[in-house]
Structure formats: structure tokens, C-alpha cells
Design a protein around this nucleic acid. Structure first.
Lengths: 119, 119
DNA sequence: CGGGATCCCCCCAGATACTG
DNA sequence: CAGTATCTGGGGGGATCCCG
């Protein structure tokens, strides 16, 4: 289930869950990282930067992000082979600051774990 | 796998993943929400506020959060029956601002989805 | 009271092959 | 090039029972 399908029958759960649902997926966080760095990317271009990700999985993750209105797909059918590209929507852009903070916190967390382990 | 078991062989993945791993779990976000509101809670007390959560799942989620050094368990064995309580660690506290922002963003997101659906 | 152990089912994701 | 279709197994999570 993608975040867009969440209804209010989960009312007892916090809106926080909607945010986590969007990011929930084996490759979504790293895909978003890529699209933050380079605002427009081709399907195969993303695939190359994701070592270990199958085409099937990439398609699934991208389509879920699109369903959730976080990214947008552009298709150029004027030529063969078809070219598609992906970029963040405005909604997706609004998530960037939070993603960056989570990234910074994650770094601090890993450092802290190291210290704990060595003490 | 809990976040604490993540090693640097996932180097190509962003630290963001560590943060998401910590929050990844069916009940973790809502458990953290509870512990943010009420700093000290009993096992059964948490369980009551989580409709649909089994004891098995609560135990699993709590133990993972503890392994990741986000919460701490206190056990009082001086009486029978045993009393346990949980509270956020310092590390867990440091995550609170980000959780709050994700909650706020999630609310905005749900509102935006509503507008999109009605247009 | 606060769990752990076990069994079992279902879904996620990998592998592989096919297509507009 | 950018995906879909199908098959399959492994693990997450529910139900149930047991324990200090």
C-alpha cells in the first residue's frame, strides 16, 4: 500500500505514518537522494547508480513515488527508443529539507554508535 | 535487521537509510509518539493505546528500538508481578524534532492530497 | 505482568523471460 | 530503452501456547 491509499480509518495513527509510508521501500530513499542531486534523470541513469536494484524493483518504487505525487514522469515518444525522465514534484521538493535533516541525523547516529561500540 | 546492525558495506546508501531503518516497523512511529507525549510508560500501558497490536509485535518493536539505543527499558523486580517501563534515551530525544517535522509535513501532505482529489 | 517459543500463512522481492 | 508477466522462496507478522 502506498501512502496515497491511506484513509482516515487509520485515524489513531499519526500523520507521521503518511510521511514514513512515502519513504518506505527498499530503494525510495536513495532514489530521492539522486533526484535531489540531479533534478532530471533517465530511468536507466537511475538504475546504474543503484547497484543491486532490479528493473522490476525500480519500476515499482518509481511508480509508487509517482502515485504518491512525489515525483513526476515525463515520456518522450517522438523518437524510438522511448525516453523517459523523472523529477521531483513541488510536493516532493517540500520533502527535501526533512530528508536532509534525516540524513544529517543518520550520520550523527552512526558516529554515536561507533563511540558506544568502542567504549 | 535493525539499524544498529547496518555496516559500512552499505556505503553507497545514504545515512538517511539508518534513520529510516530505526523508524521502520509497523508500530515504531506510534510507539515513539506515545513516549514523546508521556515520557515513562509501562508495557501494558503502551499496548492499550495500540489497537490491533499483539503482545508479540509490541515486544519485537520495543526490543528493536532498545537495540538501536532509541529507548531504554527499566525493570523493577523488587515486586511480583514484575514491572517494566520504557522511556526515550538521549539519542531518542534527539530524534524528536525530526519526528515532529515529519508529523507536520504528513498533515500538510494529507491536506494536499485531499485538494488534489477534489479538483 | 511481561514476555518468549513455535507454527503457519501470505506477501515482498529476486530471477527470468517477454514486449511496445 | 523502459518497462510488464510469471513463477518461486524467504521472511514478516498473526495466532496460540508456555513461562518466570
Amino acid at each position: 500500500m502506498v501512502a496515497a491509499e491511506m484513509s482516515t480509518r487509520h485515524g489513531e495513527r499519526c500523520p507521521l505514518d503518511s510521511t514514513l509510508k512515502i519513504l518506505d521501500g527498499k530503494w525510495k530513499s536513495i532514489i530521492l537522494c539522486r533526484l535531489m542531486q540531479q533534478k532530471e534523470m533517465r530511468y536507466s541513469e537511475i538504475l546504474q547508480t543503484l547497484s543491486g536494484c532490479t528493473r522490476r524493483m525500480l519500476s515499482l518504487q518509481l511508480s509508487q513515488l509517482e502515485t504518491d505525487h512525489i515525483i513526476k514522469k515525463e515520456i518522450d515518444t517522438s523518437f524510438v527508443p522511448i525516453k523517459t525522465s523523472y523529477h521531483l514534484t513541488e510536493l516532493g521538493q517540500s520533502l527535501v529539507p526533512i530528508i536532509k535533516e534525516m540524513d544529517i541525523w543518520g550520520q550523527m547516529y552512526l558516529d554515536t554508535l561507533c563511540k558506544i561500540k568502542n567504549s
